[in-house]
Simulated scan of single mutants.
Amino acid sequence: MAKKITVIGGSGFVGTNLCRQLSLKQQDFEIIDIKMSNQFPDKCKIADVRDMGTLRKTITGDVVVNLAAVHRDDVRDKSEYQRTNVDGAENVALVCEEKGIKKIVFTSTVAVYGFAEPGTDESGAINPFNEYGRTKFEAEEKLRAWQMKGKNSLIIVRPTVIFGEGNRGNVFNLLNQIASGKFLMVGKGENKKSMAYIGNIVAFLETCVATEQKYGVYNYVDTPDLTMNELVSQVRAKLKGKTGVGLRLPYWLGMLLGYVADAVAMLSGKNLPVSAIRVKKFASSTEFRSAKASLETFQAPFTLSDGIERTLQSEFISPEPNREIFYTE
């Protein structure tokens, strides 16, 4: 008998793309979210992971994929990370225990490693630098406790930065700056950036749902990693027909501008596109390794170059005006 999949946070970017694939394959699923799904309203139930009562009423699947999270850098009420990421994950586990649901697939993040050494794999030291990374690891611990209580299955996925068609996160912001000619390279550009294309993330989550493996933790990275110089040069060549990265700003000056922007944001109460933490993240290496191929001998359906090409094509070269847009970090 085919299993029904409950996708918590299924109205978001990853969730919508996952549900689109499930729908194409005629897989039974339901969406649990605090907002209605634009693409699958008939499959969506409104509930909040912070509210046990709503979860009890809405979750009816056999496997839970928990994508719900607070993850933006500019969240002012830091307690929101705790309530949604940690308490929410614990609530999901408790409802699964009550309902006899034996499997959870949980999306965590490579942010649990903090500013990690290049090549960090799943055995890397846990050293988050922000509330997002800290609370996602704490959520992992809550779910590990649930998994160990009985014959439960738990697969944890720690993606690096996710990009793709319709996503208005950090990667799109970079691509858009290059497309508009307003991009300034900060630092030497030799730092590498691990990235994950949405089509591959969805395929891996499907593999996680299908596997009979009882427990696993997997970073998700599409390799080979590109340096910022390589990434920017490729995009400029495609969109602008130009070579190289263009104008370059020394790192110290970029950080100074970031601190000035932080001060302005604090005084004005407005969120600005530039901040010290964003400059630091941009200029740092986020180069991870993944054991994903060991899960059912997984093979990504798209190369990283395919993902970049598809995103540039759909966002800048032949944009689709009716596509749903998702605003994320």
Rank of each mutant, 00 (worst) to 15 (best):
P273D: 07
T243H: 11
F172K: 13
L67Y: 07
T135N: 00
K102N: 12
F183L: 14
V64F: 01
A283C: 15
L231K: 06
S294N: 13
A68C: 09
P273G: 11
A179F: 10
E141Y: 04
A291S: 15
N176M: 07
T211S: 11
L22F: 03
K78R: 15
I126R: 00
V186W: 03
Q27A: 09
I59M: 14
G216N: 05
N91R: 01
A261E: 10
G166L: 11
E138V: 00
Y259K: 14
T211D: 05
A179Q: 13
Q313F: 09
L304Q: 08
M266I: 09
S37M: 08
P273S: 12
A69S: 11
Y218D: 06
L226P: 05
R248G: 06
R236T: 10
L184F: 15
Q234A: 10
L253V: 14
F204W: 06
S305K: 13
T311H: 11
I34V: 15
V279P: 03
G244I: 08
K193N: 05
P321I: 13
G10D: 02
K182P: 02
V14E: 01
I32E: 04
L18P: 03
E80C: 14
E97M: 12
P301H: 11
E117H: 10
F282T: 00
W252S: 14
N91P: 05
E131L: 00
V232Y: 08
V14H: 04
V49L: 06
E122K: 04
P273H: 09
V92C: 05
H71M: 11
T6V: 04
K3H: 07
Y132S: 03
G88C: 05
L55K: 01
N130R: 00
M195Q: 12
K192P: 05
N91Q: 08
L239C: 12
G246W: 02
G169W: 01
I308K: 06
L231D: 03
P159Y: 05
Q147V: 05
G9R: 01
M255P: 03
F137I: 01
V221A: 09
V221S: 04
N322R: 15
M266N: 11
G181C: 12
K193R: 14
D62N: 15
I198Q: 01
D48L: 08
Y218N: 03
V63L: 02
V49M: 02
I32S: 07
K3W: 07
T84S: 01
D225H: 15
Y81W: 11
K99D: 04
E80L: 15
L267Q: 12
V264S: 08
G241C: 03
N170D: 05
S268M: 10
A237K: 15
I277G: 02
L249D: 08
R289L: 09
G187I: 07
V186M: 12
L312M: 14
T297Y: 13
D222R: 02
Y81T: 00
I59T: 05
Q313G: 11
T211W: 09
G244S: 04
I104W: 01
V95M: 10
T286G: 12
G169N: 01
V75P: 02
